[in-house]
Simulated scan of single mutants.
Amino acid sequence: MAKMVLDLQQACLDEKVSCYNLLLRAYAIAEKLNIKDMAEFCTNEINGYYDIDDKTIPLYRKIHVNAEAYKETAKRWEPISFPAGSPWSMSIIVESIAEIEKLDQSKREMLEVRLNYDEQLAIYQIIDMPKPLHVRQIFMAAKVTSILQIVRKLILDWALKLEKQGIFGEDLIFSSEEQSKVKDVPSIQIIINGNVTSSNVAGVLNDSISNIQTQRKD
């Protein structure tokens, strides 16, 4: 007979199973067992962190980025240097896990965060420079892959903890005995703030390396 928890573990070990699918399975288990923290974690990853206070967003979604300004006179992108500790050297990846998986499948080497006008204006003021045509943040696409790997590992760790407490969920049903054991299941550890501070919410994440490469050739 199928056991939900063991099936989830097996799925976590299969790279062909998407993180989106893993989160749906974990969410179903968490809801059936009334484990609110895990259900909320799954919901946030599935829907994205668009309307959530950035202070509560997991640390693994806060990444270091490089900023560049397009100089019209030189017809090229040039790096921007910020003061030590500037929040603009960080960006928060708020997209849903499905969107992140789509970006990961693009097999690009670099990705770009497009900043809105107000964010670009704030950068102009910090670095005291004339307004260029465009300011952007770029980062290695491997950092997106890392988000998927961390989420997969968190789900696996949680499923293993359920198993250790004798919670399996046979045929999509958890017995009253299994439900009574939930209080003894250790929480998964998700670092929220750590020692990183960041106040800028990322703009729209774009799979735009082809544009970057073309513009760099100018």
Rank of each mutant, 00 (worst) to 15 (best):
K55I: 01
Q125R: 13
E31I: 10
D207S: 15
V201Y: 15
I167H: 00
T56P: 01
Q179N: 13
N44T: 00
K131N: 05
E40R: 09
D184F: 13
D128K: 11
E119P: 01
K71F: 07
N200H: 09
N44S: 06
Y124M: 10
N211M: 12
I126M: 10
M90F: 03
V144P: 02
K55P: 00
V5E: 06
L115F: 11
G48S: 08
D104A: 15
Y20E: 15
N195A: 12
P186K: 10
S199C: 02
A39W: 02
S176D: 15
K62A: 03
I80G: 09
E40D: 13
P79N: 03
I173C: 07
I46W: 08
P83E: 06
D171N: 15
Q189F: 08
L160S: 08
Y124Q: 10
W158R: 04
M110Q: 15
Q149F: 14
M90K: 11
E31C: 05
D7R: 10
E99F: 15
A142Y: 11
I92G: 04
K36F: 06
S198D: 07
I126E: 15
T197G: 11
V135C: 11
C42D: 05
K3M: 11
N116Q: 05
K183C: 03
I100E: 12
L160F: 02
C42H: 06
N193I: 00
L8G: 03
A122N: 09
E99V: 01
G85S: 02
M4K: 12
S146L: 07
F139W: 10
M110N: 09
I190E: 07
D118R: 08
E101T: 02
K107C: 09
K102C: 08
D128T: 01
C19L: 00
E78K: 06
P186C: 07
N116M: 06
P132I: 01
K36Q: 12
I150R: 14
M38K: 05
F82T: 00
Q213P: 00
G169Y: 01
S89K: 13
L172S: 13
S198C: 15
T145E: 14
Q137G: 05
K131H: 02
I46K: 12
L156I: 03
V185R: 07
A74V: 05
I150P: 09
K75L: 03
Y50A: 11
I46C: 07
K75I: 01
Y49H: 03
R25I: 00
K153H: 11
K107H: 15
N116S: 07
K71V: 02
E95P: 01
T73C: 01
L22K: 06
P186T: 10
G48W: 11
D104W: 12
I192T: 15
I192H: 05
E177Y: 05
R216I: 00
S210I: 13
I92Q: 11
H134W: 13
K107N: 09
M1L: 09
L103G: 06
A202Y: 06
Y124C: 14
L133N: 10
Y70N: 01
I209D: 15
S106T: 13
A26N: 02
P130F: 04
Q213D: 12
E78C: 04
D218K: 14
S175H: 03
P132W: 02
K75G: 03
L103V: 11
L24S: 08
E163R: 14
